[in-house]
Amino acid sequence: MSTPEERIEELGLEVPDVVAPLASYVPTARTGNLVYTSGQLPIVDGKLPATGKVGAEVTEEQAAELARTAALNAIAALKAEVGELSRVRRIVKVVGFVASAPDFHGQPQVINGASDLLGEVFGDAGRHARSAVGVAVLPKDAPVEIELIAEVE
Rank of each mutant, 00 (worst) to 15 (best):
A76N: 07
V15A: 06
A77Y: 05
V54T: 04
S131Q: 15
L85N: 11
G46I: 07
H105E: 14
V54Q: 02
L13Q: 08
R87N: 15
L22P: 00
A136L: 15
L148N: 07
G106V: 06
A74M: 06
P108M: 07
I146Y: 03
G134W: 01
K140N: 13
M1V: 13
A71F: 05
T31H: 12
N73Y: 01
A63H: 00
V98M: 05
E10G: 05
T59F: 08
I43T: 09
Y36D: 13
I75H: 03
V110I: 02
T28N: 09
P4M: 05
V121W: 02
A136D: 15
L117V: 07
I149P: 00
V94L: 11
E153C: 02
H105P: 06
G106I: 07
E120T: 08
V92D: 13
A67C: 10
R68S: 13
V98C: 05
A132I: 00
I111M: 10
A50Q: 14
Q40V: 09
T37A: 06
L13R: 06
E147I: 00
G83L: 09
F104Q: 03
M1P: 12
V137M: 12
L118H: 02
A125C: 11
A125Q: 10
I111F: 01
Q40I: 05
G113H: 02
S24M: 11
L138K: 06
F104K: 04
D17H: 11
P27T: 05
V98H: 04
E120L: 15
T69N: 03
V137A: 15
R68W: 08
I75C: 03
V95A: 11
D124G: 12
E65K: 14
L78H: 08
G134T: 00
L85Q: 12
T31R: 11
H128C: 10
R68T: 10
L138G: 03
G12S: 08
E6D: 12
A99T: 05
Y25C: 04
A71Y: 05
D103E: 14
A142C: 08
G126S: 03
D116E: 14
I75V: 15
V19H: 04
A125I: 08
V110T: 00
E145F: 00
R87V: 04
A64I: 06
R30K: 15
A132W: 00
E61Y: 04
V82I: 15
Q109R: 15
S115T: 12
V15T: 10
V137N: 12
G96Y: 04
A99F: 03
